[in-house]
Design a protein around this nucleic acid. Structure first.
Lengths: 120, 120
DNA sequence: TCAACAGTTGAACATATGTTCAAATATAAT
DNA sequence: ATTATATTTGAACATATGTTCAACTGTTGA
């Protein structure tokens, strides 16, 4: 007895098809979830968080930022490029210096929300 | 002429020491920036965002989540472990099933803030 | 014009991350 | 006990990420 497992039995699983269909209906699109994850990714690095924090205090040049974070100018510049690409910071050139400042209220708010959460 | 560069000249740089010291004084600690980046890291992945979204609608088992996201049960389970470790979700066992639901208001709020930002 | 300097960039490297596959648990039904 | 099912786990793999180093741009001042 037993051991028969007819190929024609339609796969009965524990999945609650009703729930699945209902949640699927309003699920984030792939585009949305990717865009959202990219937004959070910008804030998912200690160096960038420190840069954002510093720039939330005042406009600063690359050199000063490196001094404040105590890391290389190159490392700062690489991270600033990411923040620039995400339109999180803007910059202004004067003589040989490049001065950066925050440019995005939305993400700056997310940053502060997160900070409050961590410091609670 | 020129080409003299006395070794005794004290390194004069473009760094604005005053600004640097002032910002350094209130700078995020390394602990704070790491903890904060870890918080944002949880939200920095499309799969986890979809899981969080689904669980914000209703309590669901691993099987249903896999069905909703259309990815393998294993992938879901791995991500749920991360969410569990960060205390973002809680679970309840019933028979062979494990039902998950959201457990952290703070991060759920960050998620919603971010979603509003992206959808604006 | 040339040297010095602020900043950017690309390559190389190490590390972290997410997925898949296969194997291991755990629970329920026969 | 044995089998089936729901979930977890570990290893392997590919890809992404952040830092360093060296080379390069562009601007200033001699």
């Amino acid at each position: 007895m037993a051991a028969q497992k007819p190929a024609d039995v339609c796969e009965i699983k524990a999945i609650d098809e009703k729930k699945v269909r209902s949640v699927k209906k309003t699920m984030l699109t792939s585009d949305e979830s990717v865009t959202l994850s990219e937004t959070f990714s910008v804030l998912a690095d200690p160096t960038r968080l420190k840069l954002i924090y510093a720039l939330s205090k005042e406009e600063l040049c690359v050199c000063d930022l490196a001094g404040i974070l105590e890391i290389s100018v190159s490392a700062v510049s690489h991270q600033l490029r990411i923040l620039r690409n995400m339109r999180l910071v803007k910059f202004r050139k004067h003589a040989k210096m490049v001065y950066y400042s925050l440019d995005d209220k939305h993400i700056a708010n997310l940053f502060l929300e997160g900070l409050n959460h961590v410091r609670e």
